[in-house]
């Protein structure tokens, strides 16, 4: 592979990693628990800003050309972890108000409005995260320590991303496979019945909003540490719908399906315009990309609402034809509990 191609491929892989974490997190909220978090992108943005200001150092550095709060220069994993913390706290704050005694579609509205307002704040309060210009020149983590060539560093970062993805996947997998995951799906399927069985629906929803918020923040932090800049243009509220489309198309409720969705929508569909000649007026191709996303959502919701890879059915084999492998009876087929 030529080094230009290697650069391109490794960058794509990092984007894929970011999308994977984000889509799994959104799937936990939307696909598994039924919390329609239309403000998801805010938590990714918050993570990115947190990581950026904690990596950049005080805002007098770089000649003081950008203004932001809490500037610090912390060693690598710290900004990432701090981003997760901030993402969790912020989503707990918004969730504790927005999820309260409201119908699920009202909740969606509150999150959506919050997302649009957050962009307003970040753009117009200039001292916060440098306003509309956004933050730039965020140094890449460990780049000074590992002493790699730029190309090798790209692959090094792909490795870091792979580790993050693996951790996120295992975390979400454990959650969704457990009895807790079953409770979450029960809340999704019938909120009142779940409440009547003793599940604190509000707390369960808040829990996935917080976990998803923390993961979204991690994905944002990982992205900004790689690309080095972040501004209001990177997280327009409609970006949530890209991830939403990925979840719906891939197969909501199924982590593998969602991973496929992450490959199709945020990565492939975003990259495709690079390879087709620019036509129409300025911004035409970009506008059409959104139209395609909208049409894809409609087509899938109509013809295949379960997505490309639907949620798996958990067979326990109580009937006897398929015995569960630990049901205490003879095992004829190996079926695992949960997914």
């Amino acid at each position: 592979m030529s080094s230009a191609l290697q650069f391109y491929m490794s960058t794509l892989l990092v984007y894929l990693g970011v999308s994977l974490i984000a889509c799994w997190a959104l799937n936990l909220q939307i696909g598994v628990t039924g919390v329609l978090n239309l403000g998801f992108i805010v938590f990714q943005a918050l993570g990115a800003y947190t990581a950026a200001v904690l990596t950049l150092g005080p805002d007098t550095s770089n000649g003081g050309f950008q203004h932001y709060v809490f500037g610090a220069e912390l060693p690598f994993p710290v900004p990432l972890l701090a981003a997760a913390g901030v993402g969790a706290l912020a989503s707990a704050g918004l969730g504790s108000i927005g999820l309260r005694r409201l119908r699920s579609d009202y909740q969606a509205m509150v999150f959506l409005v919050a997302a649009i307002i957050a962009t307003d704040v970040a753009t117009n309060v200039t001292g916060l995260v440098n306003g509309a210009a956004g933050l730039s020149l965020v140094p890449q983590p460990l780049s000074a320590n590992v002493g790699l060539s730029p190309l090798d560093y790209q692959w090094f970062y792909v490795g870091l991303m792979a580790i993050l993805c693996a951790v996120a996947f295992l975390l979400i997998r454990r959650l969704t496979l457990s009895p807790l995951g079953r409770s979450l799906r029960a809340v999704r399927d019938h909120e009142d019945a779940a409440e009547a069985l003793g599940y604190n629906v509000y707390r369960l929803r808040l829990m996935v909003v917080v976990i998803g918020g923390a993961l979204a923040a991690v994905s944002g932090a990982a992205l900004v540490e790689f690309i080095g800049s972040w501004g209001p243009g990177s997280w327009f509220y409609q970006e949530t719908f890209v991830y939403l489309a990925a979840v719906i198309i891939g197969g909501s409720g199924n982590n593998i399906g969602v991973a496929l969705g992450a490959l199709i929508v945020p990565v492939a569909l975003n990259e495709l315009p690079r390879f087709i000649p620019d036509f129409g007026g300025p911004g035409f191709v970009d506008a059409m990309r959104w139209v395609v996303i909208g049409v894809a959502i409609l087509v899938f919701l109509y013809f295949r609402p379960q997505g490309i890879i639907p949620e798996k059915r958990n067979r326990f084999g109580l009937a006897g034809t398929v015995r569960h492998r630990w049901s205490g009876l003879a095992t004829r087929a190996r079926v695992r509990l949960g997914r």
């Binding site: 329609l36 239309l38 119908r103 959104w290 139209v291 909208g294 919701l301 109509y302």
Partner: peptide, 29 residues
């Protein structure tokens, strides 16, 4: 088709995306 309350919100979002960007594409920014 049996799309529930919650799914209808997503349908309206998709319609919004299509309308806004069609107008943007045809009439320009």
């Amino acid at each position: 088709r049996g799309t529930a309350l919650w799914g209808m919100v997503i349908v309206t979002i998709a319609v919004a995306l299509i309308m806004q960007n069609t107008l943007l594409g045809l009439a320009g920014p």
